[in-house]
Every structure is written in C-alpha cells, then in structure tokens.
Nucleic acid binder design. Sequence first.
DNA 1: TAGTGGTCTAGACCACGCT
DNA 2: GCGTGGTCTAGACCACTAG
Lengths: 263, 263
Amino acid sequence: MSSATSNPTSNGAPSAGAGAAAPGTSPTFSPLYQQIKALILQSLQSGEWKPGELIPSEVELANRFKVSQGTVRKAIDELAAENLVVRRQGKGTFVATHHEARAQFRFLRLMPDAGEPHYADNNILEVKRLRAPAEVARQLDIKSGDSVIFIKRVQSFDGAPTIVEELWLPGVIFKGLTAERLVEYKGPMYGLFETEFGTRMIRASERIRAVAADEPTAELLNVAQNTPLLSVERVSYTYGDKPVEVRRGLYLTENHHYQNDLS
Amino acid sequence: MSSATSNPTSNGAPSAGAGAAAPGTSPTFSPLYQQIKALILQSLQSGEWKPGELIPSEVELANRFKVSQGTVRKAIDELAAENLVVRRQGKGTFVATHHEARAQFRFLRLMPDAGEPHYADNNILEVKRLRAPAEVARQLDIKSGDSVIFIKRVQSFDGAPTIVEELWLPGVIFKGLTAERLVEYKGPMYGLFETEFGTRMIRASERIRAVAADEPTAELLNVAQNTPLLSVERVSYTYGDKPVEVRRGLYLTENHHYQNDLS
DNA sequence: TAGTGGTCTAGACCACGCT
DNA sequence: GCGTGGTCTAGACCACTAG
C-alpha cells in the first residue's frame, strides 16, 4: 500500500496494486484502518479466533492485509478500546473473554456500600422454554411467540438475598440450556454463554427505575411488601448490535448501591 | 527531540538537548506523549486557554515542546477521549465547554420513556450559606463546619415536577452565588459554574438507590407519600480529581428512566 | 536472544472549513 | 489557496515476556 488512496465502499481486502483506485472526490470515505478493523471484526465474529486466544501479531496482520503496522495498530487500538480485544505487551493481543477478573464487574454495577465487591451466590428458581411475550420479542428483535428460554433466579451476597432476576434468551441460540448446566457452571453466566453457546455479549443498555416490591418478590428478598427496589431492565447485544438477552432485575439497595461513573 | 529517551519523573518541558538523560533502566517510565499531555493539562487548568477557545495547532505545540506532531497528536487524542478538548477537522482543537449541545446530557441520565430528551424547568426553592455537615465535608474533602453553599431545587418536565435536588458547593470557590444568578441564568448549571466561577466539572460519580418518598418530597413531586423514588447521590470533580460538588437527587420514575449503557 | 506490543519521528498526502 | 486536523507509511528504538 504505497499511497493513501481511499476505497469508497467496503471491499474484501484493501486494493493491492500500487496506486489503485481513484483518489478524487470520495462519496463515502472510509479510512483504511476502519476497513482493517472491520476485517478483524469479521474474524472475531466468525470464530476464527476464539475468546481467550492469541490473535496474529501486528506485523503478521500488516503483511496479510498489505498495509503498514501503524494502520493495523490503529485498528486494534479501537477494538481494544471497545473491550473486544486485550493487548499484553511482550505477549501479544488476545480475544477478550468474560472468564477473567478484569471483565467480571463490567456488567454488574451493584456494589456493597462498604467493602470490596464480591461474588453472589446464585439460586436458580426456574428454567423453562416458552413463547416470547410481545414486549420481550420486540426487544430481542424476534417474532412474538417465537421460542425463548426463560430463567428466574435469586442472587445473594453474604447469605442475604439481594437480586431477583428474570431473563429471556432466544431459543434458537441457546438451545439446550438447562437448569443443571446453569447450576453446575462455576463463574459468570456470560462466560457460560460464550463457551457453551458461542455467543459473546459485547454491549448492554440498562433502564433503571424505582418500584415497590410486590408480594412474591418481597418474600424472595425477605423484606416487607412495597419496599422500594431498583428495577434494572437490560438488553444485551452481541456482534452486529444483535440483541440476544433481555434481563429484568430487582435490586435491594439497603446495603448496596448501583455505581455509575460519568465522564 | 532526536531520540526517544525517557524522563523518569515529571520535568517542566521535555529535555531540549539532543540525546539527553540516561536512557538505561527506567525506574518510573513515562512516555513522552504523557508528559506533553500533562503540560497541556496544566495550561487548561491554569486557564491559559479558556472553555470554548481554540488551542494552538498541533504543529505549533509540536514546535513549542520540541517534539514531533505525532506525539502531540497522541497527547491530544487522550484529552479528547476524556472530553476535555474537542477536535474539529479543518478548524482546530477547542477547549470543551458545558455550553454546547453535545455536552448537555452527559451528566443527566434521566430520559423520558417516550420521545426525545428535553430540558427541564428549573425551580429554585432555596439558596443559603451554611456550615458543611460532616458527611458532605468528607465528600468535598473539606473540614466539617467549613462554609458551603446549599441549594434546593425542583425540576419539571412538561410541567410535571420530576426531580427534587439538593446541592452543596464549597463556599470558598462559589463565593457570591445567589438565587438570583441561578434563576436568571439560562442554560446548564455547569455552564454557569464554568463561566462565572472558573470551575469546570470534568467527571462525576453516582450512587443510585431506591427509596420511599418522605412527606415533604412527596408533596413537591405531587405524589403519594412512600412512592418509590430513585436516589442519586453524585460527587463531581474538577481538574486534579478535586471534588467540588455534592448533589443528592430524588427522581420520579413513572414516565422517565435512568439510562445507562454498559460497554 | 527473539518476538511482541509501545513509543517516537519525519514526511507525504487527504478531507475539511474558511477566505 | 491555505491552514487545520486526519490518515498512512517506513523505520528506528524501547519495554516486556519467555524460551
């Protein structure tokens, strides 16, 4: 790649020839490093490199794509900033995974008021297959009535039940998910999804409200009915901004709080 | 700057001489671009370049600091990522300000369930000077009993009171802040702080809980007592991670929600 | 010692905003 | 046309890891 020509739309690999396409007016200009980023993203999504694995070195990728190392670097920089990949000096660049300390609390913002964040005990109450309610179907971008896996669980900190949560997962993707596998599995649920079902959560959006505990929820959390609870409704997305999980949690915030840093 | 030598600790400007300090083992290695970033940060903090103003071009800064443009670029890249500075291709780099559309909703995460986010009507109930309660003093990193400005206000959306908020500001910094100035001022409160008191908020940390409305709050929000509300406790920081505002808000989430994106 | 990511440079050219 | 930020390259050297 001798000169910085622009390739208007997406093309498999950057044009190999010397001074290729017309550099003139560019209708939909896309920087080379963005194209490289998209290519790497494809390899991640396709599973060519799996979570936890080492991806090819910058030099190797530069040779493969026929661009300079600096361009590959910039592409990987962005992927690292989006937590899709983790750089380790002297070792290489690895595909990010939910099985590692640094990613554990990225999707759980409920912190104890005092002391270090720690793991929750997980009590699965129910796992069943059902037909997606209209609202859930809308959020998962599937048809109303399509098969979904429904999970209900209670999470406790130091023996105190704190979170009641209901989850809906597309049946097509999470076929074969059973209560046993959920209970047996040690570690974060997103880790299980990643290794057992090949679906990696990369982004989520939460809507938070205050609500009053209804009777069954109050009983599960061992508090009085109408106790104020945080309602956290989450939609999680995998590659390509595809929604693959709806989660509705009720958090007891007597000794915990939802932590959020604005910057 | 001919070679990439490292300057162990902070030094005013990168060593000017050709191949300066010992490049050998580096006890506390700090990349050149980080040093440049720190220098630019100083100019921002000292007010050499004020919010909204154009800062010197990359080439000019490169000459001033005797480094390459690429190094200045990387420094500014990070400042831009932290929202301290805004790049505009063809025009230059500007000091970020709270008086601009793009920064308006960075610190207000309460969104209407339907429709576009819009501005709140601001009803100042009370502004007075008092001595900092212990807890507030601790959060502001001042002495208990030091003078603070206390503000209480109600914010309404489309005529519906939705937020009851109490604020504490260090008296030393916000001397002369009165109810009149708050009421007269059009635009975001952080914009006023920035232009009238030379204090720019760059970061904030929030702790969110669910609580029951007490009687006076319920009356202000025009709801029944014990209605579940979102309690949002915020500490805001200016340059140097110095806390300069404590804010306790109670949000009515019947037609609004606190929006948070995890990534 | 070899390989990887991380820093720094110098120079070329492109896209954009203004005059 | 000129100045600004944005992209791309090629090459040198540094810091870190592991065999």
